[in-house]
Write a protein that binds this DNA or RNA. Sequence first.
RNA 1: GGCGACGUGGCGGAGUGGUUACGCAGCGGACUGCAAAUCCGUGGACACCGGUUCGAAUCCGGUCGUCGCCUCCA
Length: 455
Amino acid sequence: METPLFLYNSYSRTKEAFKPLDEKNIRMYVCGPTVYDRAHIGNARPVLVFDILFRLLRYLYKEDNVTYVRNITDIDDKINAKALERGVNIKEVTEETIGWFHKDMDFLGALRPNYEPRATDYVSQMKDMISKLISLSFAYPTEDGHVFFEVEQFSDYGRLSNKKLNELKEGVRIENENTKKNPLDFVLWKPSNAEEPGWESPWGRGRPGWHIECSAMAKDILGDQFDIHGGGIDLIFPHHENEIAQSTCSNDMKKFANFWLHNGFLKIEGEKMSKSLNNFLTVYDLIQRDFSGPAIRYNMLSTHYRQPLDWKFERLAEAEKTLIKWNNRIDSMDETELPRQILNALVDDLNTPQSIHEMHQLFNNEKFDELRNACTFFGFSSKVTQESVLIPADLSEKVDKLVEKRNNARMSKNFSLADKIREDLLSAGIIVKDSGQETTWESSQKLRIKKLKEL
RNA sequence: GGCGACGUGGCGGAGUGGUUACGCAGCGGACUGCAAAUCCGUGGACACCGGUUCGAAUCCGGUCGUCGCCUCCA
């Protein structure tokens, strides 16, 4: 291949040249959402980061040669709690949340993965994997209906997260202490009570532990080995560590994923995003506040994916402005060739900030065709950014009349009246612009309908 | 306590042994009745202390600071 792709592999902790297992069948698995609530912008980060990687792989290796799997976790205690709280069944919660997720991610312009497997459809594969792990003595059932993976049996346990077993043992959570051989052993299967979702199994009615679904689904769709496994950095331990253990041990010790990619965390206005701080921001919130999908993408991609990202509304507004500026000079079109300098930035461990820098250069040098290609690739060109906030037709007429009144005042040199009208409109969120003989206006994010009605 | 990341101009954010990143904001100018928008121009930086080097923001060591993971989490 002419353009070598380099990616930072969390497993080796170095940037490595990406060599596919099979150039005709590139396989990527990314951990998707647990569907119990609206996707927050922290959920959106991996979606957008790996969307760029997906697009890049398709660009480099041709669309048909790339398979992207992103799972949906629809078995989880948080889901159970939500269903119980709302007095509905679990399926209602998961179906509704999946619908939201799709809508929100589509809004962000993320391509849909080739497969979106759901845990509930793979329980039998999980049970098969658990049985195999038991038969190979990597796992053991207990009398009370649990099955645990025995971490001591897997010598590479801790390699991804750079942890040593004896260090981990200190300060480990005490749970099922009496039935586990080792406090670090993690659950593959756990018993369900009558209220909890459960499946019949050789170990009694129960449900799978969290980690096993990814191992089972990845194996079923992508095979024992594949190229890239991605997710948020917080998943390194224990989730991905456990996936490696389960998959490796049940797949004849074959190496699981070749590359492990992890995106950094996200803060909001300098603070950790958390429900207790009440700064929990969902994608839906942003949509409601009239931010465009491309601007959210731009904002998200203007920081390198491995860096922590501090989400600021000031930056989002800046992104919106930049994209409007660009989109006024380009027309949307099917993606063609990616400008060389942008490709070079992307193949260097997805340097999206550098790519954006290059786009600014293309704009400044009036290379609008190349800018258009880049914007198309990044999902930055969209009519959304060119539309101002919608206002009702009757109010639109009202603004037209006020603008006309102002122009009459200007003609008769009554500038104080003209300025008054302009300021009134501005305070209602309407920006008036005089260019040459023409006067135009547009509604801004600060539109105040009530104020406008009063004018 | 263990492991790890990071500290770049007002803000955001790349780069990385030897020429300006860049964007936004600021400032000056053009345009305008005045603005807005747009265009042109422009100042300003690499946490601190040592070391290596002809030369370090870039490598090495230390100090300070911020943050993350180790528990469900993207």
